[in-house]
Design a protein around this nucleic acid. Structure first.
Length: 146
DNA sequence: GCCAACGTTGGC
DNA sequence: GCCAACGTTGGC
C-alpha cells in the first residue's frame, strides 16, 4: 500500500492515536476493489513510501477495519470530494490500517534487483496502482530481509 | 521539473 | 461505443 510520506509516513502512522489511519482518498476502481473485496481483518501489508526521495517499503501494517464508505467523498471541502457519490449509493470505500512495525528502507531499486521479485505488480512498467496484491512467496522473500 | 504511461471524461 | 484530450501518477 503506497503512501506519500509527505501525507502520511510510517512515523506519522506510529504516532497517531491507536496507531491507525483510514486509507481514504483512493479514487481508482481497481484499488478500491482490492480494499472492498479482498482485504480481510488481520491481513498484512507493506507500507510503501512513494513520490519521495527514497521510494520503497518502510514498514508493515495490518488491516484493522474492513472496508466502509470513504467519508471524504461526501465532504465538499475535501480534495477527494465526489459530487457523484451519495450516502445511499457511495462510490468509494476504504479500509483502516494499524501500525505493526517499522522496517529498514527496502528501496524500489533493491526490489528491482531480485529476479525472485520481477513479477511484482508494483515493479511492472507503467503500474500506477496505489494498492496491489502481493504473492505469498514474494512476501516471504522480502520479509526475511527486512 | 520532466515525461511515459495510464485512467477518465465527454463530444460525437 | 469510439477516441482525442486531459489529468494524474510516480520514478528519475
Amino acid at each position: 500500500m503506497k503512501s506519500e510520506p509527505s501525507e502520511v509516513s510510517i512515523d506519522d502512522l506510529a504516532a497517531r492515536p491507536g496507531q491507525t489511519v483510514p486509507w481514504d482518498g483512493v479514487r481508482n476502481y481497481q484499488a478500491r476493489n482490492f480494499m472492498r473485496n479482498q482485504m480481510q481483518l488481520g491481513d498484512l501489508a507493506f507500507f510503501y513510501h512513494s513520490s519521495c526521495a527514497e521510494p520503497g517499503i518502510a514498514g508493515i501494517v495490518e488491516i484493522s477495519r474492513l472496508a466502509y464508505p470513504d467519508e471524504t467523498q461526501f465532504n465538499p471541502q475535501s480534495k477527494y470530494f465526489d459530487p457523484g457519490a451519495t450516502r445511499e449509493n457511495p462510490r468509494w470505500f476504504n479500509v483502516e490500517v494499524r501500525f505493526i512495525r517499522k522496517t529498514r528502507l527496502f528501496s524500489i531499486k533493491e526490489l528491482r534487483s531480485y529476479p525472485e521479485l520481477a513479477g511484482m505488480r508494483i515493479l511492472q512498467k507503467g503500474n500506477r496502482l496505489s494498492i496491489t496484491p502481493i504473492d505469498p512467496s514474494e512476501w516471504k522473500f522480502i520479509e526475511v530481509q527486512l
